[in-house]
Design a protein around this nucleic acid. Structure first.
Length: 484
RNA sequence: GGCCCUAUCGUCUAGCGGUCUAGGACGUCAGCUUCUCAAGCUGGAAACAGGGGUUCGAGUCCCCUUGGGGCUACCA
């Protein structure tokens, strides 16, 4: 394959959507795999909804995911004159025409067609306006749109989709469509054709929602006499919500990359996960976890292996992958990601408590934001009921006995030895033996006293993390509570 | 409604006519470990939407039905 040039063309009318991120990733993977080029183009021709903030979010998010473009991003609004020039040429060649129909009129026309069960399509009313009519309309200050004239004898439009094979549609189903809006701004797929051609884009890899636009775009290529030099097309399956609807923000689900970032997902986890939505490496062995780093993704990727049917976004699998990469992080790396964004207000990193907390909580985290919930008792004294101190498989008196004996024993341990797990472990074991108790009668109440929870790391680990003073303070508090 | 795309476990998918008593991953269940939870390890349950063809032979090819998705704007 000659070196391909691909592009991701987000429109800044919202934050970077996870679906757009996936399209970007596939473009990126395709370019890297084939030693080609990957570009970013901001399609900001929707003047009403586009904002600079969204553009910033999109660019930052792409960067965060490691999907920066090989050149500086281009913006369509900065290239308006170029598109206009091409539209004017089309006008001159009578392949396009001014349309003075008002939005209201068009709306009415459409309603009528629908009520008659006809496909809504532009009637072609302004198709054969005389010079004179055009002049009078212009004098009335009516701003026209420019529409492309669909050749009547075009027959069936077909193209070969890299993922789906041949796709076709009858040209007669398409009405003369607007290429330049009345404010002089091109419609995105007109600008897109020109940009793709000028940037020598070789492969257009985009979402399935653009399949029907492709037919219109082919008509534009042909009108511009670029019909022989069209790029290859590949349409990716959609990403769906759990209820099979198009993935969008609702029910508190988040869909933008920056929200996933905020929630504490790692870029490599997100990339790993979205790569597997609609694609799976064929060559990879039958066994093994589906954990791929970016480099593996590049070497494995093949556009023809992309699936055709929509994929549901399964957050549980994302959580699994994220947890895996979180565990692979070094303690220092994890700390720099958690501190200070994911600490609750007022929490301080005193006595290196956060470092110890991280070590103990690491295996239990799915995402960075889990930390505050999992580790709160390291930073503040837990509040709990007496009940929690009693070992379920035993009773209150034995738990009391175990707890008080443990306190006495632990007091004897030297502060220096407190850092050694095996010393603390042995001490607790000795208590069990000496008092003729079960492990649970000692370990459970000590652990519960320190964490205030039914589920937590082991008592030995908690003792170590909290230190002698704080541990003993919590333990004697617990003893008071259980003696009540 | 019209047009286009699509259909294997709950989910993501492997399968590109015989090797499929359908494989993997997440989830789920059970067990191991164990004071609890998590992690880890071991094992189990779980799917070819339905109906017609083609063929010696169909999850794999064709058609229909049904389901799902997309598009149907002076949004992208």
């Amino acid at each position: 394959m000659i070196k391909p040039i691909v592009r991701i063309a987000p429109s800044p009318t919202g934050k970077l959507h996870i679906g757009t991120a996936r399209t970007a990733l596939f473009n990126y993977l395709f370019a890297r795999k084939n030693k080609g080029k990957y570009l970013i183009r901001i399609e900001d021709t929707d003047a009403k909804r586009s904002t600079k903030n969204y553009e910033k979010d999109i660019l930052n998010s792409l960067k965060w995911l490691g999907l920066e473009g090989d050149d500086e991003p281009t913006r369509q609004m900065e290239r308006i004159e170029i598109y206009k020039k091409y539209a004017e040429n089309l006008l001159k060649e009578k392949k396009a025409y001014y349309c003075f129909c008002s939005i209201e009129k068009l709306e009415e026309e459409r309603r009528k067609q629908i009520s008659k069960k006809q496909p809504p399509r532009y009637s072609g009313k302004c198709r054969n306006l005389s010079e004179k009519e055009i002049e009078t309309y212009q004098k009335e200050d009516r701003e026209p749109t420019i529409r492309l004239k669909i050749p009547e004898d075009r027959g069936t439009i077909a193209f070969n989709d890299l993922i789906r094979g041949e796709i076709k549609e009858r040209a007669s189903l398409i009405g003369d469509f607007v290429i330049i809006k009345s404010d002089g701004v091109p419609i995105f797929f007109f600008a897109g054709v020109i940009d793709d051609h000028l940037q020598k884009i070789s492969h257009v890899i985009r979402g399935e929602d653009h399949i029907s636009n492709t037919f219109s775009q082919i008509l534009i290529y042909e009108a511009l006499k670029w019909g022989k030099k069209m790029p290859e097309f590949a349409h990716l399956p959609m990403i769906l919500n759990a209820d099979r609807s198009k993935m969008s923000k609702r029910k508190g689900d988040f869909v933008s990359v920056s929200e996933f970032k905020k929630e504490g997902y790692l870029p490599k986890a997100l990339v790993n996960f979205i790569a597997l939505l609609g694609w799976h490496p064929r060559k990879e062995g039958k066994e093994g976890k589906e954990l791929y780093r970016s480099e593996e993704l590049i070497s494995l990727f093949d556009i023809e292996e992309v699936g055709k049917s929509p994929a549901i976004f399964d957050k549980q699998k994302l959580d699994y992958i994220n947890g895996y990469y979180l565990r692979k992080l070094s303690d220092d790396e994890l700390k720099s990601l958690i501190y200070p964004e994911h600490l609750a207000e007022g929490w301080q990193d005193k006595d290196k408590i956060i470092e110890k907390a991280i070590i103990l909580v690491k295996d239990r985290m799915k995402k960075l934001s889990d930390f505050s919930e999992l580790a709160d008792y390291f930073f503040e004294k837990p509040v709990y009921d007496q009940e929690i101190l009693i070992f379920k498989k035993s009773d209150k008196s034995l738990s009391q006995k175990g707890l008080s004996a443990a306190i006495l024993k632990l007091k004897e341990i030297d502060k220096k030895d407190w850092q050694r797990h095996e010393v603390i472990q042995k001490a607790l074991e000795e208590v069990v033996k000496k008092e003729k108790l079960n492990n649970g009668d000692v370990f459970w109440p000590v652990r519960a006293a320190l964490s205030g929870r039914e589920a937590s790391p082991s008592p030995v680990e908690l003792l170590w993390a909290l230190g002698k003073n704080e541990s003993l303070k919590r333990l004697s508090g617990a003893l008071e509570l259980i003696n009540k």
